[in-house]
Each structure stands twice: as C-alpha cells, then as structure tokens.
C-alpha cells in the first residue's frame, strides 16, 4: 500500500483501543442468529433506537450549503451525515478521455474520523468501489446526452458514518445534481435494509448492518438499492451476505415502498430550493 510520505503516519503496529474491549463469553465468534436477533431487537419488536423494524430514521435534507459548488446537498439520516458537492459541467481536461456523451466523475470519501476505525486520507479500495457504484447509479439517472464532451463532478464526503452510507449518498447526490440544474430523468432515492433470519430491518445503523462473520447459521445480509420512483427503475443494487431469491424479493419490496415515501420529501426540498433561488433573483433584479 503506497503511503503519502508528507503526511504523518502512525506507527505501523497501531490499532484501535476498541479491540481490547472485553467481550462477554467470546460473544462475537459464537453468536447464533437467534442471539443476534435478540441483541438488535427486544421482545416488543422495538429496535435499540426505539424504531419499529420497518421504520427509517428521521431524514434531514438541505441544499446549497457549499457556495463554490454549482449544486450541493447535505443529508442527515440519524447519525449518518454526509455532504455532496456537484461541479460542472466543465470541459474534459484530458484529451484521451474524450467521449461524445457527457461523463460523470464520482468521488466517494469517508472523512478519516467518520468511522469507528480511522480511515486513511487516500481513497482505499472500498471507497473506490463505492465511487464506482455511485457513478453507475447516477449515470442511469442523468441525461448524459445533454452535455456532450463535458463532465460533471460529484463529490461525496461522509462526515459521520452510522450505517447505510451508500443509500444516503445516492439520495444526497441526486438532490445535489438536481439543485445544480443538471438534467435528470428522475431523482434517485437510496435505501438500505438488513436481513435477519426472520426479520427485516429498514435503514440499519452501523450496529445493525451486516458484518461478515463466521458461524452464521442462517440467512443474514445487507441490501442497498438506488430507486427512481417515478420511472420504477432500479439503478443501484448491492447485496452482501447470504439470502434466497424469495427473501431478496421481499427485501426489494420493502425498500422500494420506502423510496416512494421519501420521494415527496426530496421533491419538497427541491421545490424550496427553487423558490429560494427565484426569490433571490427577484431581489437582485429589484436592486438593479
């Protein structure tokens, strides 16, 4: 792994003190699904943060928070917080990258302090893959033929990661793109769901998210979907963990239903953005 010599690196053998935490009765290794389920949900079917299994966390959206960017958005989904800035369309710098259609350039970055484990300043493998997933999802939504030979940059910075970062990033990026007046077929709404053997948890937090572990005796997985509600199209689909196709069908149903509920919220936010923009333009004209 190449390291940036200009940055101060910790000693190579440094590790997070959280690993020294005492775990009860070798817990993690021997957790069976039944116990796991008990850990995440109590007997009244209420999750640790007082949600029902099919409830999502409260959502907060705001546009126009980066003055330098063409469009920007901020999303808060419980404790998952991230910003997105959209720049362009601008001319493609490298001649070799020339393409007749417009191009999207996506960068997904976790702030070094955003996760429990410290992340490096350089994009790691996971971030690269998330960038790719984001680009593939947005490419399906953006009318690329409207800005030929140009590129639009979409930068995501995760400030705090408390589960489902890709889902939040999809919603945030499509809102930022829309607020930057980039022509799109539809808004993309992201949503995630965690599958336990007999239970589905919508919009999982970090603790509820699926972690690769041994000895999982039954089906356990995580699914993130990017959905375009008015077009009824799925533009991102990432599933990790073990499931049957029938279970995946059910998970998909829950997720798309949730997306349909979120769509008006995002549209409202967008409407307010446009109204604000028109109002400020009106003021400018009056001043002249």
């Amino acid at each position: 792994m190449p390291v940036d010599s200009r940055r101060l690196q910790g000693p190579e053998s440094a590790f997070s003190y959280t690993l020294l935490e005492k775990k009860d009765a070798n817990a993690e290794e021997s957790i069976l699904s039944a116990d796991l389920q008990k850990m995440l949900i109590d007997s009244n079917h209420v999750r640790k943060d007082k949600r029902k299994p099919t409830d999502a966390r409260p959502l907060f959206l705001r546009t126009g928070i980066i003055s330098q960017a063409k469009g920007s958005a901020y999303i808060e989904q419980g404790n998952t917080k991230l910003v997105c800035g959209v720049y362009g369309p601008r001319e493609v710098q490298k001649k070799s990258d020339f393409r007749l259609n417009g191009q999207l350039f996506c960068e997904f970055k976790f702030a070094p302090f955003s996760c429990q484990k410290r992340r490096s300043h350089q994009q790691d493998n996971e971030e690269l893959v998330l960038s790719g997933l984001l680009r593939e999802a947005l490419e399906a939504a953006v009318c690329l033929h409207h800005f030929p030979k140009a590129q639009v940059e979409v930068n995501i910075m995760v400030i705090e990661n408390d589960g489902s970062p890709l889902a939040a990033a999809l919603t945030c990026a499509s809102l930022a793109l829309a607020s930057a007046s980039i022509p799109m077929y539809d808004l993309v709404i992201g949503a995630a769901v965690r599958q336990l053997p007999k239970l589905l948890l919508l919009d999982p937090t970090k603790d509820e998210e699926w972690q690769p572990k041994l000895n999982h005796d039954e089906n356990n997985s995580n699914l993130t979907v990017g959905f375009m509600p008015s077009m009824q199209q799925i533009c991102a689909y990432v599933h990790e963990g073990v499931s049957n196709p029938e279970e995946l069908e059910q998970m998909l149903k829950i997720v798309t239903e949730y997306c349909l509920k979120v769509q008006p919220v995002v549209q409202l936010c967008l409407k307010e953005t446009v109204e604000k923009m028109l109002a400020s333009e009106g003021e400018n004209n009056d001043a002249e």
Binding site: C235, E240, K253
Partner: peptide, 24 residues
C-alpha cells in the same frame, strides 16, 4: 444454491420485477 452477493453492473437501470426474475 444461496445468493451470497449481488451487484448491478453497467450504466443502465432495471425494473424491480425483471430484477427479481433475474435473481431467481
């Protein structure tokens, strides 16, 4: 016969119904 990971590839999109039938 269990599915252990899925991802969509390419820059297009899919209808939920066709996606489900593809997974099956």
């Amino acid at each position: 016969k269990k599915i252990t990971a899925v991802r969509k590839i390419g820059s297009g999109s899919l209808h939920p119904e066709s996606l489900v039938s593809m997974l099956k």
